[in-house]
C-alpha cells in the first residue's frame, strides 16, 4: 500500500495533467458504453436501455443465419487490408519524394491539390464515378469505343470493383494521409542527415537508411490504428459508390452495408447493436494480437 502511495506521489503531476482527458473519456465514452447491453435486449421506448426485456442472443441471429456473415466479413477485411497497404505505400512515397524536392512552389501546390479530394463528399464522388463509368455516356467507355474497343459494363460486373474502389480510396486519402508522414519527416533531426552525407551515402541510400527508419514509429502507429478498424467497412464509400446495385454485391458487400440493408425497414436497435458489438470484439482481438507482435519487436512502437 505504502509503495502504491509513493508511486502515486511520484506520478502526481502526470496524473493531474491527465485528469481532464480521463474525465472526458469516462463521461463521454465509458458512461454511454452502457448502451452495449442493447445487443442482448429487446429494446422498447418505454423500457429504455436498462428496463427493456432481455433477448438472449436473438439479436445476433439474423446476421449469422444469413449465410452472408462469412462473405461480408471476408470482404470487409480484404478491402481494408488492400486500402491499408495501398494507402500506406502511396502516402509514404508522396511524402518522401516531396520532401526531396527543392522547388518550394511545386511542393506547396502539389500538396494543396492532393488535399482537394478530401473535401469532395462520397455522394459527389459517386456522381463523378457514374459520369466516368456509365455504360451509356461514361467517358471511359466513350474513350474505349473511340479506340476501337468494346464497351465495358462496369456497373453489371463485380470483378472490376475491388480495383475501382481501391483507386478511389487511395485518391481520396492521399493528401490527408501524406501530411502525417510529412510531419514525421519534418521531425527528424537534421544532424542525422548531415552524418549520412558525410558517410557519402547517395540520396536513395539516405532515404532507405535514414528517412524510412525514422518514419517507422509513425507508420506503425498508423498501421495499428487502421488495424483497429479492420472489421468496419467505410459505409459512406461503399454505400454511395455501389448503393443498391445488387449485381455488384458479391464483390462489394461489407458488414456495414449488409447490416444497413437488413435493418433499413425495421430499424431494430438491438440488432444493430449486436452487429456493432460483433465488429468491436473482432477488432479488439485483432488489435491485441497486432499490438503484441509490435511490442515484442520494440515496445516503443506499440499502442499500449
Amino acid at each position: 500500500m505504502n509503495k502504491f502511495l509513493r508511486k502515486l506521489n511520484k506520478n502526481k503531476i502526470f496524473l493531474i495533467m491527465l485528469a481532464p482527458a480521463v474525465v472526458y473519456a469516462l463521461l463521454f465514452s465509458y458512461l454511454p458504453m452502457a448502451g452495449i447491453v442493447l445487443a442482448f435486449k429487446k429494446y422498447t421506448y418505454a423500457g429504455g436501455i436498462f428496463g427493456s426485456a432481455w433477448n438472449g442472443l436473438k439479436n445476433f441471429e439474423f446476421f449469422f443465419r444469413s449465410g452472408k456473415a462469412l462473405l461480408v466479413s471476408k470482404n470487409t477485411v480484404l478491402y481494408n487490408l488492400a486500402f491499408i497497404i495501398l494507402n500506406t505505400l502511396t502516402q509514404m512515397t508522396v511524402a518522401i519524394l516531396l520532401v526531396e524536392l527543392n522547388g518550394k512552389y511545386f511542393k506547396k501546390i502539389a500538396q494543396s491539390l492532393m488535399f482537394l479530394p478530401y473535401f469532395i463528399s462520397w455522394v459527389i464522388v459517386s456522381v463523378i464515378a457514374f459520369n466516368m463509368l456509365s455504360n451509356d455516356f461514361g467517358f471511359v467507355n466513350s474513350f474505349l469505343v473511340s479506340m476501337g474497343f468494346e464497351k465495358i459494363s462496369f456497373y453489371n460486373n463485380g470483378k472490376y470493383w475491388p480495383v475501382i474502389l481501391s483507386i478511389f480510396n487511395v485518391w481520396k486519402s492521399v493528401g490527408y494521409g501524406s501530411v502525417l508522414y510529412l510531419a514525421a519527416i519534418m521531425g527528424i533531426d537534421t544532424e542525422v542527415y548531415d552524418a549520412a552525407a558525410i558517410d557519402g551515402a547517395n540520396v536513395f541510400q539516405r532515404i532507405f537508411r535514414v528517412t524510412i527508419p525514422q518514419m517507422a514509429p509513425t507508420m506503425v502507429i498508423l498501421l495499428l490504428l487502421s488495424i483497429g478498424g479492420i472489421f468496419r467497412g467505410n459505409f459512406d464509400m461503399f454505400y454511395n459508390l455501389v448503393g443498391n446495385n445488387g449485381i455488384l454485391h458479391p464483390a462489394t458487400d461489407v458488414i456495414d452495408t449488409f447490416t444497413f440493408r437488413a435493418l433499413i425497414t425495421n430499424n431494430d436497435f438491438g440488432m444493430s447493436a449486436a452487429v456493432g458489438l460483433f465488429q468491436s470484439v473482432l477488432c479488439f482481438v485483432t488489435v491485441l494480437v497486432a499490438n503484441k507482435l509490435v511490442n515484442n519487436y520494440d515496445p516503443d512502437y506499440s499502442l499500449f
Binding site: A25, P32, M33, I36, S280
Partner: peptide
C-alpha cells in the same frame, strides 16, 4: 489502453 479502448467499443447513439 484506457483511451484506446474507447475507439473499439461504443454504446451507440441513444445513450450518448
Amino acid at each position: 489502453f484506457f483511451f484506446y479502448f474507447t475507439t473499439l467499443f461504443n454504446g451507440g447513439l441513444v445513450p450518448y
